[in-house]
Simulated scan of single mutants.
Amino acid sequence: MASIFGHGLVAYTTAKVIDSNTSKLVVFLAIGSAILPDIDVLAFRFGIDYIHPFGHRGFTHSIVFALVWSGLLSMIFGKKRKLVVMTILFLSTLSHGLLDAITTGGKGVGFFIPFDNSRFFFPLRVIKVSPIGIEKFFSEWGVNVIVSELKYIAVPCGIILTLLLLLKKSKTD
């Protein structure tokens, strides 16, 4: 998996690309939604195997989960802009699995659970897989994860956010 930092940055960028004036609440929900799929690591504590549909990178990383979760949140928090909020939250939640599918570890992502239990990776797998657990994150392994996320997540997101800012500024001039 990518780290919570990488997932959060992609969600923030997604929210700003879709609606540069989106509320702080929606940005917060987007970041939380991008991190939420990893709640499935709790499955290990209950003896649920990694490749089980409810195992790590299973249902909570699926397109169906992203749709249900974003639909629920947009009904609660969307007010007059339900479709915009749902789009931001859907893409933010889905981005978690997309990032995980380009990491160097794990057993793939169950994008199509509950319809198909197959796990997938993308051909390009460049983000170092993040360790599970805080103590392992503060190690050489964690440093390697941060370096790969800077290169493949932070720099592209920074470029996109800078271009958005410049575009917004040029419209006001």
Rank of each mutant, 00 (worst) to 15 (best):
I31G: 12
F44N: 11
L42D: 01
V41K: 10
L42E: 10
L25R: 12
V27M: 13
F44A: 13
L36I: 15
R45D: 14
A43F: 12
L36W: 13
L36S: 14
A30Q: 08
F44W: 04
D38P: 03
I35M: 12
G47E: 05
S23E: 02
V41F: 13
R45Y: 04
D38I: 14
P37I: 13
V27W: 00
A30M: 09
D40Q: 08
I35H: 06
I31K: 02
V26I: 15
H52A: 11
K24F: 07
F54D: 01
Y50W: 09
D40M: 06
L36M: 14
F28L: 15
K24H: 10
L25D: 05
I31N: 07
S33D: 00
R45T: 13
A43I: 09
F54M: 13
D49N: 09
P53A: 01
V41R: 07
I51D: 15
D38S: 03
S23P: 00
S23F: 00
I48W: 06
Y50P: 00
G47H: 02
F28W: 11
I48A: 00
L25G: 03
I48Q: 00
P37F: 15
L25I: 14
L42R: 14
H52I: 03
R45G: 14
L42N: 11
I39G: 10
P37N: 07
A43W: 11
K24E: 14
F46G: 08
L36V: 15
K24M: 11
L42V: 13
D49Y: 08
D38Q: 14
I48H: 01
F46T: 06
S33G: 11
I35R: 06
G32A: 05
S23R: 00
A34D: 10
V41G: 01
V41C: 03
V26A: 12
F46R: 04
P37M: 10
S33Y: 04
D40I: 03
F28Y: 09
K24W: 09
A34K: 08
I31F: 08
V41I: 12
S33R: 02
I48C: 00
V41H: 04
R45S: 15
A34L: 12
F46D: 11
V27Y: 00
S33N: 01
A43T: 12
G32Y: 02
I35F: 10
F28I: 11
D40C: 04
K24V: 07
A34S: 15
H52E: 06
P37Q: 08
V27A: 12
